[in-house]
Structure formats: C-alpha cells, structure tokens
C-alpha cells in the first residue's frame, strides 16, 4: 500500500516509502525530523506550515507527501546559507518580528515568496501578502517592519 517517493529537501534528496494519506508536513516533521515547519491548524488557515515547493510558497498541510514526489523543497532549516542568516531572518530578529516564534517559520517562507514577486512592497501590500498567515503574538506590527527591513537590505545587494 505504501508508495515510494523521492523528494529533494534543502538540497538533499530523500527516498522513502510512505502511506498515501501522509501529509507532506508530517513527512517533513516526523520522517525527516525537520520540525521547524509547524502545524497550527487543520483547515489551511494559519500558514505555520508554509514552505517553498518548486519555487512556490505552499501550505504543506494541504499537500500529500506522495504529491511532492520529485519536487524540490525549501524549508526554514535550509534558508540560512553557510551560517549566514537570510535578510528576512535578519529582519525578523532586528525588528522583533516574533515572540513565541511558532508562526515565524511560515511567516518567513511566505515573506520570501512575497519579496521575490514584489521586491519593493508597500506596507499595505505586505499586510495583504500575509493574508494566509496568522500570528497571535505580535499584532503584525513588527512583522511588517521585519519584511520592510529585508526588502531594503535585499535591494542593496
């Protein structure tokens, strides 16, 4: 009944036999032990599970592991390169864009796609871009500032 899948996560290819109903988020968390991707809901609302799959931000609680077969995935664990924080990670740290940190990985991955598509967003565009990501701690104030920080820093590069 199990199906073989091959998935490249953060540059490393993994092969596993999985139950067809296994969600990608549980594959990442429980099989690959990449627990930075979180599960905050069961209705695809919170965005805590946002990852980049084939260059698209997706909520991986709505993707089956078997659907990810052959795909390229980036999770929060793979974002910093050679110990160097990504400007978005830096922005969240500098601007205090997190408190409990639970929504943070999803926020950061969502911001990554947002800034790729729109490198100079307005505050309102950032707020709209976070429509699918919930944070219960920060009131979003500093998250918006964190993403602006990253946008500026990335523009300089």
């Amino acid at each position: 009944m199990n199906r073989a899948i091959s998935v490249t996560v953060n540059g490393k290819t993994h092969k596993h036999e999985v139950e067809p109903r296994l969600l990608l988020v549980h594959y990442l968390r429980d099989v690959l032990n990449l627990t930075g991707t979180h599960v905050g809901c069961d209705t695809s609302q919170c965005g805590a599970c946002t990852i980049i799959m084939n260059d698209m931000a997706v909520k991986c609680c709505t993707v089956l592991a078997v659907q990810a077969n052959g795909s390229k995935i980036l999770t929060i664990e793979g974002l910093a390169k050679d110990g160097q924080l990504h400007p978005i990670q830096e922005g969240f740290w500098e601007e205090h864009g997190l408190q409990c940190g639970f929504c943070t990985p999803g926020m950061i991955m969502q911001a990554l796609q947002m800034l790729q598509r729109n490198p100079k967003p307005t505050d309102a565009e950032i707020r709209r871009g976070l429509e699918g990501n919930l944070c219960r701690c920060t009131g979003y104030h500093n998250i918006v500032k964190a993403i602006q920080y990253a946008a500026k820093k990335m523009a300089r590069k």
Partner: peptide, 8 residues
C-alpha cells in the same frame, strides 16, 4: 530568536 528564525 536565532533558534526560532532558523527553525530550531
């Protein structure tokens, strides 16, 4: 924060 922003 370093551990939270890196998924650790």
């Amino acid at each position: 924060d370093p551990r939270f922003i890196t998924g650790k």
